[in-house]
Design a protein around this nucleic acid. Structure first.
Lengths: 232, 232
DNA sequence: GTCTATATACGGATAGAC
DNA sequence: GTCTATCCGTATATAGAC
């Protein structure tokens, strides 16, 4: 699957995401008109990502956010009850999206290498569609409460386990070489991660997301199919 | 080379590092007795890394730092002129260390794969020796001035170029398959990076630094020597 | 060289007018 | 729903005693 096919299939628009945020947090939001709320949440999230990208969420003041969104401080506090809650809203919505898309992407490929390639590419594509969410989640994880942090780590295990299962399946079928599958999965995740952590570098070099995903898949294929280097 | 051999060879002790910091920044430091200064810099850096690890440098207040070091606010300002300068001192010293060690580690291995393996392992070992410096440099890069940021990016190019040179050399000798070497180098860096970014995960699973370095090298070897998958 | 005490600015958050 | 004005805590940084 290419990136543009992926994008067409999942269709998580900014507006849809903001509407979902509004509906899920309606009790703590003072604004009653959905249309207004959705429109302003778009502004708010865009501004948070923009400012946090360069200086971090902690260093972003509510006055910064007010200036960037064009909303006053008082107005902003109609959309969330505290700066910390704003952080929580963003993190929770990010996880919801990842979970939904990964579940939708469990494609019916039987051959292990095909399956592995599909999952790796889908994750990279998703991190491209929702890049600000991915970057933000990674960099701001340190500012989370104990509870939220656990949810983040659970998410990390979940995505890693998907890879481990495929790797084990492949080994059992005799297609992949033996190996330390959790370690292989971690390394795959490290490669996926670089796409959203160092995006500026890849952009500067004109590397497309398709090209990057393909390269990672090739890397992993060489390793997993390299039966000459099989231990024992 | 194993990690313990590497460690014995480079011998960058905390005290040496702090003495170097003192001597290089003597003009902006009010303290005149070297022994006192070195001792307190050790306390200060340890405290900065500890606090910043969990909440970030921005969120660390000077009061936090005062409490953790046991020095008063007034005393702290004898060691640097502003919180921002403290950040700069740490970043500069981190770069100095990396540069020195990488230069020392340019080993006389002629066979490309051996050379590649040595450089990859050395970088991972160094990130283990100076883990707090690596983690801090990565996470706090966003808070740097324009000028400092350029120095960071230059350092990134420098380390990446070392890899690219080896990869090209290997291709020219007909040992490595053809490929997009800068992209391969980036992916190698992504794997190296994960060791200090996600150290808690590897520690939890009892993965040693030797084991990790070996796994990364195996991964890269499979890819670079996989002539079946050669393009064209 | 280090302390305590404080100047000064900026942070998050809210009250009340429109 | 949004704005302006403001409360009050905490931030960095410094002055001056010891």
């Amino acid at each position: 699957m290419t990136y543009s096919e992926f994008k067409r299939k999942i269709s998580e628009s900014k507006e849809d995401i903001c509407r979902e945020v509004y509906q899920k947090n309606q009790d703590s939001i003072r604004i009653k008109k959905e249309k207004t709320a959705v429109k302003n949440f778009e502004k708010i999230f865009d501004a948070v990502f923009k400012i946090s990208y360069s200086k971090g969420f902690q260093a972003m003041s509510m006055r910064d956010l007010s200036r960037e969104t064009g909303l006053s401080m008082g107005a902003l506090y109609g959309y969330f009850t505290s700066k910390d809650e704003l952080l929580g809203i963003i993190q929770r919505q990010g996880r919801t999206m990842v979970k939904r898309v990964l579940e939708e992407s469990q494609i019916d490929k039987d051959e292990p290498m095909e399956r592995l390639a599909a999952v790796i590419a889908a994750h990279i594509y998703l991190s491209e569609v929702a890049r600000p969410w991915f970057f933000f989640t990674f960099m701001e994880a340190r500012n989370l409460s104990e509870e939220e942090l656990k949810a983040v780590q659970a998410m990390e295990s979940y995505t890693e386990q998907i890879l481990v299962d495929i790797l084990e399946g492949g080994e059992n079928k005799g297609v992949f070489k033996k190996g330390n599958h959790p370690l292989t999965a971690s390394i795959i995740k490290a490669m996926q991660q670089d796409w959203y952590l160092k995006r500026w570098k890849y952009k500067k070099r004109n590397i497309s997301v398709d090209e990057y995903a393909q390269y990672v898949v090739d890397f992993v294929r060489s390793f997993c199919l390299d039966k000459q280097a099989e231990p024992n």
